[in-house]
Simulated scan of single mutants.
Amino acid sequence: MSIITQYSSYAWVKFWTPSFWLPSNITWSDFKDTEDVVYPKFQEICYPVAYSIIVVFVRLIIERCIFLPWGLRRGLKQTKKKVAKNVLLEEAYKQGGSDLPHSKITGLAKQLDWSVRQVEQWIRHRKQQNKPSALVKLTESGWRFTYYSFAVCYGLWALWDKPWFWNIDECWTNYPHQTVSWDIRLYYVFQLSCYWSMLFSQFVDVKRKDFLEMFIHHLTTILLIIFSYTCNLIRGGSLVLIIHDFSDVFMEAAKIFKYIKWQRGCDTCFGLFFIVWTVTRLMIFPGYLIKNFWLTAPNFMPMFPAYNALKYLVVVLFLLHIMWTYFILKILKRALLSGKTERDSRSSSSEASATEDTSDQTASSVRLRKK
């Protein structure tokens, strides 16, 4: 046991080697608070794992006390109409799912003395029964809309008077001896707590086709928050966080309007979502933030391994944005050409058709109508 303890202690010390986490000639002893500078403490970034449990309870309250009653008043049902029980069809459905060959459907129709149309209709209704109801999806989108709205409002309030919000070069001035104010600490703790809760709840929420991509997105963001907090690269990290929240507010609003069947509100919010997504995630993020992280920061401070890891993490996020943008554009093209309502593939359930995409980052069925 003593050997294991010694090895664990050795591994822990090696993990925190300053040569990885900090610039050359800087050690952890330099991260002691002074009258002018308050440094981040690693233990503070551990608390959000526990705080995520509180976030889950807050989410349940918001979903069940606000959006569930509202959805019911809007005429949504808690449960779907169950299909009539049929042992033969149920067994065939479990074996072949909804994609039964026509010959199989014809055989079932003969055995039941039904028409082929009746069998196909039963299978279609049975498939719909497995999907989450619009009310369930409404409550989830309602919670995410609340979270993203609060994150944007608080982030703007906390960052508005910070010099690096207006001049990104200030992210690197006097690094690493940069004080961390209480409002930015709270912003980081809040965001990390919510991302931990989203990472955990992803396994019990409505299953999306972009499950893996969203898992990678959440995990990448969590690592970015932890790394940037530990290295006191909080200024740049706070800009990455807030730039990602703007578009999600409109996306979740569009989904909410879709579920309550208010098409005009859905179309308007989806249009705003696409504009804000394009500006923030495809223009500002790569052209302003990533460019500065990669090309400008080395002019202000020496590079070190942990910072290089952060540079690649933001690139991973951008690659996910490109992938999601591809699917969004496919939805827009299909809607404009056909003039019919389509679904935003970023947010469909796992049983949805192949035309549906993902996320976040992007996840929900948003209907479009050609205007």
Score class of each variant (00 low, 15 high):
A11M: 11
W12G: 03
V13F: 09
P18D: 00
F20I: 05
L22V: 00
L22I: 00
P23R: 06
S24N: 12
N25L: 10
N25V: 05
T27Q: 12
T27V: 05
S29H: 09
S29Y: 09
S29W: 02
D30W: 00
D30Y: 03
F31G: 01
K32R: 05
K32G: 05
D33H: 13
T34K: 10
E35H: 02
D36A: 14
V38H: 14
V38Y: 09
Y39T: 06
P40A: 12
F42I: 10
F42L: 13
E44W: 13
E44P: 03
I45H: 04
C46A: 12
C46W: 08
Y47A: 07
Y47H: 04
Y47K: 13
Y47N: 06
V49R: 02
V49A: 13
A50H: 03
Y51I: 03
S52F: 00
I53Q: 08
I54R: 01
I54L: 15
I54M: 15
V55R: 01
V58S: 10
L60V: 02
I61A: 12
I61S: 12
I62S: 08
E63Q: 15
I66A: 04
I66E: 02
F67V: 03
L68H: 07
L72A: 13
R73M: 14
R74P: 00
G75N: 08
L76N: 04
K77A: 15
K77D: 08
T79M: 01
T79H: 15
K80Y: 02
N86V: 01
L88S: 07
L89Y: 03
A92C: 09
A92Y: 08
Y93F: 15
Y93T: 05
Y93M: 11
G96E: 15
G96P: 01
G96I: 08
G97M: 09
S98V: 14
H102M: 10
H102V: 07
I105A: 11
G107P: 00
K110I: 03
L112I: 03
L112W: 00
L112T: 06
V116E: 15
V116T: 12
Q118R: 15
V119Y: 05
E120M: 13
Q121T: 14
Q121D: 15
W122N: 01
W122D: 06
R124M: 08
Q128Y: 08
Q128R: 15
Q129K: 09
Q129R: 09
N130Q: 14
N130Y: 14
N130S: 15
P132W: 12
A134M: 01
L135N: 07
V136A: 13
K137Y: 02
W143H: 04
R144M: 13
F145I: 00
T146Y: 04
Y148G: 02
Y148R: 02
A151E: 09
A151K: 06
L156I: 13
